[in-house]
Amino acid sequence: MSDHTTQLLTEPLTGEDARLAALHAALVDRASAESAVDVTYRLVDSPVGSLLLAATESGVVRVAFETEGHDRVLESLGSSVGSRILRGGDRLDPLARELDDYFAGRRQGFDIPLDLRLARGFRLTVLRHLGEIPYGSTESYGEVAVASGSPRAVRAVGSACATNPLPIVVPCHRVVRSDGSLGGYLGGLPAKERLLALERAA
């Protein structure tokens, strides 16, 4: 992946730079409309740090915490989804708005289309169940295993949560240990604590 693809714009653009940025955005939109792009992505700020959002034609395929390494996530998407990756376009605007509403306490779920191609088998079954855990509630790993049809697969549930490609949107933060302690979290325990506290306060 080229440096140009992953370069972040950190200062306001003026003159020729602004014109080039507008041209780039138009090209991204055009390429997306013509299916010439496998993945588009953008970065958004949030109360749990910078989040990388990525989408395909089918829907949002990845939400990644900064602790995961955004460059590594983009490289992984290049291998697993497709190498034609561009930053920009408006494909991720709906998710960005829904995340803003979620963190502001105005939204309890997400309505955007999801592309779950990065999860298969039992992991996919677990992810589908996670969306059924009510906002502000939690379930233990064991309860999720039972609900997913494999009562003994507690460790597999933990693995599915740890590799969830769509954290926050698919709420693996609502899964805790049977004794009520938090367990692990892809974005780090402070992020998990913050998400649970946000939902409890609503």
Rank of each mutant, 00 (worst) to 15 (best):
L9G: 12
Y41E: 09
L23H: 15
L23Q: 13
V73E: 09
Y102Q: 03
G149M: 03
G88L: 02
P151Y: 02
F122K: 14
H70K: 05
N164Y: 11
V169S: 00
S50P: 06
S80I: 02
S148K: 06
G187P: 07
D45C: 03
Y185P: 14
P167G: 02
F65H: 14
L130E: 00
G15P: 04
A55M: 04
F65G: 14
A96S: 11
S140W: 01
D101Q: 13
C172D: 15
D29F: 00
R152N: 05
A31C: 07
S46M: 09
E199F: 12
G187R: 14
R174L: 00
L77G: 11
V176H: 06
P12A: 03
G183K: 02
L198Q: 05
A147Y: 04
G88P: 01
E11T: 11
D179C: 07
A160H: 10
A201Y: 07
P151T: 02
C172L: 01
L20M: 08
L52G: 00
A162H: 05
T67W: 03
T10Q: 12
A18I: 05
T138K: 04
S76Q: 09
A153N: 14
E75H: 14
G89W: 00
L92N: 06
V154D: 07
L195M: 05
R87I: 06
P167D: 02
S83I: 04
I133N: 00
L27Q: 15
V144C: 10
R42S: 15
V175A: 00
C161A: 03
V176M: 08
A104L: 14
V37C: 06
S76L: 12
R120D: 11
L92S: 05
G49I: 12
A162R: 09
A153E: 12
D101K: 09
R30H: 10
G136Q: 06
A36R: 14
S2M: 11
P94G: 11
P113T: 00
L166D: 00
R91G: 08
I85T: 02
P167V: 01
L13N: 10
G121C: 13
I168F: 01
G49F: 05
H70N: 12
R97F: 11
A191Y: 09
P94T: 13
E139M: 03
L114T: 13
G15Y: 00
V157F: 02
L9A: 10
V81A: 00
G142R: 15
V73G: 01
L43N: 04
G109L: 02
V176R: 13
E34H: 08
G184T: 03
P12H: 09
F65T: 11
H173P: 02
Y135W: 15
L127P: 07
S46V: 07
E199A: 00
S159P: 05
V170A: 02
P12K: 13
R106W: 05
G88A: 06
V73H: 03
A145M: 01
S35Q: 11
H173F: 04
S80C: 04
R62P: 07
H4T: 13
T67S: 15
R87P: 10
G109D: 12
L86Q: 12
L114R: 03
D100R: 10
P167C: 05
V28M: 04
G88D: 04
T125Y: 03
K192D: 07
P190L: 00
V176A: 03
A201F: 08
V81I: 15
L195W: 14
R62S: 13
